[in-house]
């Protein structure tokens, strides 16, 4: 894999001057898209923070061909682009592929977009789908999503005196994507550029569908300081809330083993959205939260061991 120093010298797919919030880590991955590969790429975005903030008319932050339609159908739209590329190659008698990348936030991926995502993967399009998971509908004002963790306060799961934030656990979308038996599935974090760029390169260059789920802390949504996004993502990984792993042809590999698995509350209490959980009356939420993290981590360790 190329060194980060060399990657940084290459042209970025995403320019500065975009309108993401101060401290937002999402552009870390968009800048990598062209740096990790020599393929020409087309990017499609579902409605969301990245789409809105990178394309406010008459400006665009994208230096590659970029397309947006609606909220629920990014994978379907990019399936069309990828199918066109097949025809183009046949007509022009060339083998050189244009690689397709679809991006969506957790609302557009876990919730309203899961139908079109699942179908695109099942049909086997040569398409990399990247979900930047910040754990709620941040663009519209922090409403809960299927990715919002248990106990998080959002504007539609407010923490009050009777209900302590979101009452359900998040769904594990990465595992749902593994169940599609596609060539490449990975979970990555915005704080680890070496691991992240390796995964984006693999996902882009593999022949067939690929899915990467990236943990992207949200400054206003998580209620953290603007310089804390990278650090917060690192803590999320060290607690094993968000393990870094990849699955190639159903072979599991954990890419990062924390030296010491930190208790999840150490991470939660750094975020304003979990502030209410410091009150003892919500202690059961913390127990349940930790139990789910432990269960997922143990499951992953077992898969990793099986694959070795």
């Amino acid at each position: 894999m190329p060194k980060l120093q060399d990657l940084a010298k290459k042209d970025s797919a995403f320019s500065s001057g975009h309108r993401m919030c101060a401290g937002c880590p999402v552009p870390i991955f968009t800048k990598m898209l062209t740096r990790v590969t020599d393929y020409d790429i087309v990017v499609g975005s579902a409605t969301g923070c990245l789409e809105v903030a990178s394309s406010i008319f008459p400006y665009s932050a994208w230096k590659v061909p970029w397309i947006h339609t609606a909220f629920e159908n990014c994978s379907a739209m990019m399936s069309g682009v990828e199918a066109f590329d097949k025809v183009r190659r046949k007509k022009n008698n060339t083998e050189k592929k244009i690689k397709c990348v679809a991006t969506g936030g957790d609302g557009g991926t876990y919730d309203i977009g899961i139908q079109s995502l699942s179908a695109a993967m099942e049909r086997g399009h040569d398409l990399l789908y990247i979900c930047y998971d910040n754990g709620a509908y941040m663009n519209t004002g922090i409403q809960r999503s299927g990715a919002t963790p248990l106990g998080a306060a959002t504007t539609t799961t407010p923490a009050g005196s009777v209900i302590g934030g979101k009452q359900q656990q998040r769904k594990d979308l990465t595992r749902i994507m593994i169940a599609h038996h596609i060539p490449y599935v990975a979970q990555a974090s915005i704080h680890n550029p070496v691991d992240l760029s390796d995964k984006i390169k693999k996902g882009l260059e593999v022949d067939g569908p690929a899915f990467i789920n990236i943990l992207c802390p949200c400054i206003p949504g998580w209620r953290i300081a603007p310089d804390m996004a990278v650090e917060s993502a690192r803590q999320g990984v060290d607690t094993c809330y968000w393990p870094l792993y990849e699955v190639e042809q159903q072979k599991f590999k954990i890419n990062y083993m924390p030296k010491e698995k930190l208790p999840v509350k150490d991470w939660l209490f750094t975020q304003g959205r979990f502030r209410h959980l410091k009150d003892d009356k919500w202690s059961q939420i913390l127990v349940d939260f930790q139990a789910r993290v432990d269960e997922q981590w143990d499951w992953l360790l077992a898969r990793h061991a099986e694959s070795e």
Partner: peptide, 12 residues
């Protein structure tokens, strides 16, 4: 409901 601007205040 479902999130969309400019009516999020209603579901919230």
């Amino acid at each position: 409901g479902y999130p969309i601007t400019p009516q999020n205040e209603v579901p919230e």
